[in-house]
Write a protein that binds this DNA or RNA. Structure first.
Lengths: 234, 234
DNA sequence: TCAAAAGTGTTGTGTGTACACCCATGT
DNA sequence: ACATGGGTGTACACACAACACTTTTGA
């Protein structure tokens, strides 16, 4: 890898320059009623020791989506979850080594599906709340803020938030998932009524058990895949 | 250029592959009450002779935005107009030469500002309505459809459409600009009232002259730069 | 019987929508 | 005077926001 880096970065091109390309993935989940994202600890320079988004270069025969899926599988142990391309970051000095552009993706993962790989202990992958992030490597703070903004607006007109929940869930879980993403309170009754009216969820007939309170009915999504809502939700 | 292409595309990399990067720009304008986009005729293979979006490789020291601005200046003779990154297209077989990804942008240009360069007669740059496009080179049809979708939703919650109009304009012009982008009719009176209520436009006091009908009052935008609307427009 | 969360209805206010008529100009 | 597009006002329906009480469970 180092060989290729040097090769590309030290090339004295008179006219054309082809930058290197990486992918970075913002892996969102809702945990403890909070929107969190997966970070790793960088093992190598640049920014060795800094927290950063999981990412890396493309392998032969991969496009950026495939590479992101591989990273998602490697770091969080999930596949088949919702993921969309976010933006391509291309500041010439975002990487001290030279022009390295990053095509970024964000993924939505239910907390229960995540299996953090413990094989690379040096990387110490962990989740961190997005509302109080430390200083990250490269422009990764900006990337996460962009992803958060996109997610916020997206749950207003699609059922994207569903990808953060397990197959069966209560209205309360759905409710605090939305609150965590938006960062503000929503009226519980209006929210529940709206979702039921839109016919997006169906009661399974089952109920939660084991709580210190009245059991809640479990719901599932009428359609599992992403779709535009017939009318805006927020 | 051909040399660099061969160099990159024939490289036998065992692990990592760095694709080539191009930019393509969707230049929108509203002409004849219709949303149109600038196309060129490809002079060289692949797809020689096919219509295509203006685009090209990056020059040394350019990021993708800068390259897009250069192309916009070269082909349409404008600068300083609204432009935003659209999406990065990365199908491995979108270019028959091998992995060439394209970072795409779309620009909004008032019709009057456009000066099509006639220097490269082989390219025959011209505007074409987006609702009846021919088969284009590469995945450029898909790119334009993506851009159209983005523009459509964007004018619903920002003042982006303003970038398609000159400094002074009538309510009728603003109205058909929205209709052209959305591809459907909007009630004229409700539309006008809404825009005035949002305080986005101010009457200049001037009036149009020379029409065969009652003169229309000319307006200008309260704020020239892009901003989110306080409430959704559509 | 108490705490904790689930579940259910109503009402007022505001916003979108549909719609019809008069006005100013050129010919 | 007539054709053409510019400009204005109203009424109805619906969606949203605000809000309080009852129910079911475990402790």
């Amino acid at each position: 890898m180092k060989k290729r880096l040097n090769q590309s970065l030290s090339r004295k091109s008179t006219d054309f320059l082809n930058p290197l390309l990486t992918v970075d993935v913002v892996i969102f989940t809702v945990r403890n009623h909070t929107l969190e994202t997966l970070l790793i600890q960088r093992a190598k320079p640049p920014f060795a020791g800094s927290p950063a988004l999981p990412g890396g270069f493309l392998l032969t025969g991969e496009n950026t989506r495939r590479a992101s899926e591989r990273i998602l599988q490697d770091k969080a142990g999930v596949s088949g979850v919702y993921m969309e391309q976010l933006y391509t970051f291309d500041d010439l000095d975002r990487d001290p080594r030279g022009p390295v552009f990053s095509v970024t993706y964000f993924a939505l993962v239910p907390e229960k599906d995540i299996v953090i790989s413990e094989t690379r202990t040096t990387e110490t992958p962990h989740f961190s709340p997005v509302h109080c992030l430390p200083k990250l490597a490269f422009d990764h703070n900006e990337i996460i803020q962009t992803a958060r903004g996109r997610l916020r607006s997206k749950i207003g007109y699609t059922n994207a938030a569903f990808s953060l929940l397990p197959d069966n869930f209560t209205l309360a879980e759905l409710h605090y998932t939305y609150e965590a993403i938006l960062g503000r309170r929503l009226d519980r009754r209006n929210f529940n009524r709206k979702l039921r009216a839109l016919n997006l969820i169906t009661a399974t007939g089952e109920k939660t058990l084991g709580g210190k309170h009245r059991p809640a009915t479990l719901y599932q999504f009428t359609h599992r895949d992403l779709e535009l809502l017939p009318e805006p939700l927020l």
